[in-house]
């Protein structure tokens, strides 16, 4: 079966700055793929490009194809995109309040999501489907008549999820869906997202800065830094046997469990968006960087399982604990 989402050579620019360059990314049917990165990595812009929701002066080029849609999503006009969004392609963002209409009752909003795309025959059918969705995200049925402001952040995010899943999308994109939530609420929302996509065999593109969340939710992961994908592969492999020096450093720096009081760190700061170095975007912070890193590193391996580094970490056959900079 062919991939649900195929992104090729996605480049996003704003005026003279390049924010995302040459991103290739595929998501297979029913696959859960994580996109991980820090601020300025371009992970959210990648998602917004797929959704066609970039701000006015930000321009995307390249190709984004979605299964069941006969045109490229890059450059598609608003009319065509609105037929795709909410139908084949659904999204959940970090801030749930902005995704809900504050003047509409919850039940009407969910029902409307289905009526817009005519996936239910009538208002009655849509309402009973909405009720069922509410149940699926473990909210009581009397919330049908509630307004968004009457709900807590976690409840709202579950409503947004119910909306996103209403039309059984082929692909669900979640951008930091649980970052603003408390840990215990996050656990519930993450579980509902995974159950929701599994039940519909929908594919999931999950964007976050949290390594542990990605590892728990996804099967495959792409690591972004400075607007480029620097490494990709199955979660178990990337997180136990990182090849790119950035991935390695990131894992070591976030390993609060095994390290002693002093954590291994990545030196320096994350540059502002558009101010990453040429060549290897990580070379200004990389302990292994040499002169050849001024040239853009080639991608090693298949698109779905490889890395772009001039001085990759040694491959290890058995899973090992990440220890950044140990070879330095």
């Amino acid at each position: 079966m062919s991939d649900v989402l195929t992104v090729q050579g996605l480049t996003v620019t704003v005026r003279d700055k390049t924010l995302v360059s040459e991103v290739d990314l595929t998501v297979g049917p029913g696959e859960r793929v994580g996109l991980i990165g820090e601020s300025g990595s371009g992970k959210s812009l990648t998602a917004l490009s797929v959704l066609g929701l970039l701000p006015e002066d930000v321009v995307a080029s390249g190709s984004v194809r979605l299964t069941g849609v006969d045109h490229d999503l890059i450059g598609a006009d608003e009319r065509r995109m609105s037929r795709v969004r909410g139908r084949e392609l659904a999204m959940v963002f970090q801030e749930p309040m902005t995704a809900l209409n504050p003047t509409m009752r919850i039940g009407d909003q969910i029902a409307e999501a289905m009526l817009i795309h005519r996936t239910r025959p009538g208002r009655g059918a849509a309402r009973s489907a909405a009720l069922e969705l509410l149940e699926r995200v473990q909210l009581p049925s009397d919330l049908m008549r509630a307004y968004p402001h009457q709900l807590s952040g976690g409840q709202r995010q579950r409503i947004v999820l119910a909306l996103a899943l209403a039309n059984d999308p082929a692909l669900l994109i979640c951008d930091e869906p649980s970052t603003a939530l408390d840990v215990t609420v996050q656990a519930l929302v993450l579980d509902l997202i995974v159950k929701g996509v599994v039940a519909r065999s929908s594919a999931l593109l999950f964007i976050t800065h949290d390594l542990a969340v990605v590892a728990t939710v996804c099967e495959r992961v792409l690591v972004m830094y400075g607007g480029r994908v620097v490494e990709s592969g199955p979660v178990g492999e990337v997180f136990t046997n990182p090849r790119h020096r950035y991935t390695q450093g990131l894992l070591a720096a976030s390993d609060l469990d095994t390290a002693d009081r002093r954590l291994p760190t990545i030196r320096g700061n994350v540059p502002a968006a558009g101010q990453f170095p040429s060549g290897c975007v990580f070379r200004t912070r990389c302990p292994h960087a040499t002169d050849i890193c001024a040239g853009t590193p080639e991608w090693t391996g298949p698109v779905a399982d490889g890395f772009a580094c001039h001085h990759p970490a040694e491959p290890v056959s058995s899973p090992r604990l990440p220890a950044g900079g140990a070879h330095a």
Partner: peptide
Amino acid sequence: LVSAIPTLQRALSGATTSDLL
């Protein structure tokens, strides 16, 4: 609270989102 915290080690040893709950 403790079980809701996702950690890399738990995830890599097979914990899923339902284990967080």
